[in-house]
């Protein structure tokens, strides 16, 4: 996984609450058995005017000029500004894969759905929760100022505006540690293999019905 310590990038404001993962990446693209290549189909039904199909050349498709990411001023945005309950619905990790593949590194919203929030950290993508009124302010600034960028420092847990205004955010220590260092958390867990084995052995004695049934 790609590490993320600091990031500064162009902000794209997506002014819509309850963006679900079906919207982030529609189901026809979940048939892939790979983790990569989902970027061209990010927000497919909002971005294009036709019905998207897997393995299509998206550069030939009619685009929806009203959609925020299709506007020239937001080309190459890497910070997505969003509204409440972003990423609700399906657990598909294809949603953060698509956001990451498109080029986003940071998503800022007043709240995220639990599974999506967790999936982001596994893919070098940082979801940041800020208070609703701060998010409102960032929306206003991003829409008013072309080329508006935010600077994110995961070590210091801050988001800083071009005017130098800094906002603190919370993130739990384990997720932060893994993202700062680009760690594979399976490797971290396997350092505890003996503890897991001991737990398992004890469970085998006290709850034998939990073992041996699936084979």
């Amino acid at each position: 996984m790609r590490a993320l310590k600091q990031h500064q990038g162009l902000v794209a404001p997506m002014d819509r609450s309850n963006v679900d993962t079906d919207m982030i990446i529609p189901k026809q693209f979940l048939k892939s058995i790979k983790r990569t290549g989902f970027g061209p189909n990010l927000f497919d039904e909002l971005r294009y005017l036709d019905e998207g199909k897997p393995d299509q050349d998206c550069s030939e498709r009619p685009i929806n000029p009203d959609f925020v990411l299709n506007q020239d001023r937001y080309k190459n945005a890497s910070v997505l500004l969003a509204r409440t309950n972003f990423g609700c619905g399906s657990s598909r990790e294809h949603a953060p894969w698509a956001l990451e593949d498109y080029g986003f590194r940071v998503i800022i919203a007043p709240s995220f759905a639990d599974i999506f929030y967790n999936n982001c950290f596994k893919n070098g993508l940082l979801p940041i929760v800020l208070e609703e009124k701060i998010v409102d302010q960032l929306f206003n600034e991003a829409e008013a100022q072309e080329g508006y960028q935010l600077a994110v420092d995961l070590e210091a847990k801050t988001v800083t505006t071009p005017a130098g205004e800094a906002f603190d955010f919370e993130v739990d220590d384990f997720r932060r540690h893994c993202l700062l260092n680009g760690l594979d958390d399976i490797g971290v867990t396997l350092e505890q293999a003996e503890v897991i084995k001991a737990y398992e052995e004890q469970r085998r004695q006290t709850a034998p019905w939990l073992f041996g049934a699936g084979n």
Binding site: R35, S91, R92, E93, P96, I115, N118, N119, K122, N123, F174, D185, I186, T189, L190, Q192, A193, I196, E200
Partner: peptide, 17 residues
Amino acid sequence: GIGTSEVEHVLATQCLV
């Protein structure tokens, strides 16, 4: 529900963080 990275984590470790 869990994401695919966690499916792999459970396959490999029988645990979740």
